[in-house]
Write a protein that binds this DNA or RNA. Structure first.
Length: 451
DNA sequence: GCATGATCATGC
DNA sequence: GCATGATCATGC
């Protein structure tokens, strides 16, 4: 079946909206023991063409690649991409010979026919519905960044460091591992070290923003202009925006940016940030560059010694999940792989005022994730699997989860409404809600190079 | 003065 | 009511 125009193809695509995969599948691909994903079902049964794995786009006459991808509903009513969108495998030997315009990524993926289905854990796979379908062309602002990401990946291969590629290195376009297992490796041109096989991918955060734009109709705001993006990286633009305020107290910053100041209420800090970025009134998670690249901001208060006043908390641990997940798809690994933190750093001066010191855009190095964080994750699982031991002390209820001294990177500590705010462990015991915290000393080391 | 259990404030 | 970012409080 040939589709001659985009309109014709999209008309056909839209016929799938509202259908389940069971209704679409004509080749019993959902039956027991059958492999192959939803993409295969749509290709074969809905569009009626042969499955291939060419370097060319699926609908090659139109230069359109088909992708079937899932979103899930969050507890708060928003939606998120279930996963990153995995594109073509990177041939390290060949990609380095290309320009962006002739690259395998661009040739295959410049126009994407995206079909979104909702992932619902309580349903059988065949019961999932196609909810929306769109012909996606990258907005100009995004394409500038994607091109830089591609160049970053290729430059790393050119430096003989294909084995050191990491998803956290780039903003929207990533190089994610793809293979049967860790031993799936490939040759690289400028080093003898075999590198894990990787594919180009659109990051989960980037996919989430597409889905929110088209499914729940959310609008994002860019803080940077196309012109600026052409000349500078997001990181450079951020520094540029923040630099004029270095040395000012929080109160002075608020005054200069015309934001109401209240030393008791830290909510004015996000307001200061959106204001100095030039998008006053926009919530930080509605800033396009932040949402798409998954940049989360964190304020840090340094004591005069340069050590943060407090450890830094993250999400609460789901203990039932952590004992069941594999490391490769564990929550904490993915969080640090896919999240960039924007540290907004203040330091207490002699008058006990908080003075703006600078920012740092940071992601956790792969090595730290695969050693330190992995070790900590394993230890939590060990303790939970053996049954957490509690001890009542004068200061409260103590548990035997690995503490702040375990590896100098992160630890687990209570975080809830109060000590009675509890969650269930896999063995049925109750425990005060616990969160991951990055150790203050570790954060201090990260911030050594704050500009 | 840190370690660590407990708690606050806010937004949705 | 809950998640999240942030901070308090005190025994050691």
């Amino acid at each position: 079946m040939l589709y001659k125009t985009e309109t014709e193809l999209m008309k056909k695509a839209q016929e799938a909206i509202g259908k389940t995969f069971n209704e679409i599948d004509q080749h019993d691909r959902l039956g027991k023991g059958q492999k192959g994903g939803f993409g295969h079902i749509i290709e074969e049964s809905h569009f009626g063409y042969e499955i291939n794995s060419n370097a060319e786009p699926d609908f090659k006459e139109l230069g359109i690649e088909l992708k079937v991808t899932a979103f899930k509903k969050n507890k708060n009513g928003t939606i998120s991409a279930k996963e990153r969108l995995v594109l073509n495998i990177i041939n390290y030997m060949e990609e380095v010979c290309e320009q962006f315009e002739t690259s395998s990524f661009w040739r295959k993926n410049q126009k994407l026919l995206l079909m979104f289905y909702e992932w619902q854990t309580e349903l059988e796979r065949g019961e999932f519905h196609i909810i929306e379908t769109i012909l996606y062309k990258y907005p100009e602002e995004d394409l500038i960044i994607i091109k830089k990401d591609w160049e970053h990946i290729v430059n790393k291969i050119k430096a003989g460091e294909a084995h050191l590629l990491s998803e956290g290195d780039t903003q929207y376009l990533g190089a994610c591992t793809k293979g049967a297992n860790k031993s799936t490796v490939r040759q690289q041109p400028y080093s003898d070290i075999l590198a894990p096989q990787r594919a180009f991918s659109l990051k989960q955060s980037y996919m989430t923003s597409i889905m929110r734009e088209y499914i729940t109709k959310e609008k994002l705001t860019y803080f940077s202009s196309k012109k600026e993006l052409l000349e500078k990286t997001i990181e450079e633009l951020l520094y540029e925006r923040f630099v004029p305020y270095i040395g000012l107290t929080q109160k002075e910053m608020a005054a200069r940016l015309d934001v109401p100041y209240n030393s008791k209420n830290k909510a004015f800090i996000p307001k200061i940030i959106s204001s100095l970025l030039g998008v006053k009134g926009t919530k930080l998670d509605q800033i396009a560059e932040f949402a798409k690249a998954n940049i989360q901001f964190k304020t840090v208060q340094l004591k005069q010694s340069g050590i943060p006043k407090e450890h830094m908390s993250f999400v609460n641990i789901n203990f039932k999940q952590i004992v069941e997940e594999d490391w490769e798809d564990s929550y904490i690994r993915n969080y640090f792989l896919e999240t960039q933190l924007l540290f907004v750093v203040f330091q207490l001066n002699e008058q006990d005022e908080l003075v703006f010191k600078g920012i740092k855009l940071w992601h956790m190095p792969m090595e730290t994730i695969e050693n330190g964080v992995l070790g900590y994750w394993e230890e939590i699982r060990n303790v939970v699997n053996e049954g957490v031991q509690f001890e009542i002390t004068k200061r409260g209820i103590k548990n035997n989860l690995p503490d702040v001294k375990f590896n100098g990177i992160l630890h687990v500590r209570p975080k809830g409404r109060n000590a009675a705010d509890k969650t269930e462990l896999p063995d049925g015991q109750l425990i005060t809600k616990q969160s991951y915290w990055l150790n203050a000393e570790y954060v201090a080391n990260i911030l050594n190079e704050v500009r």
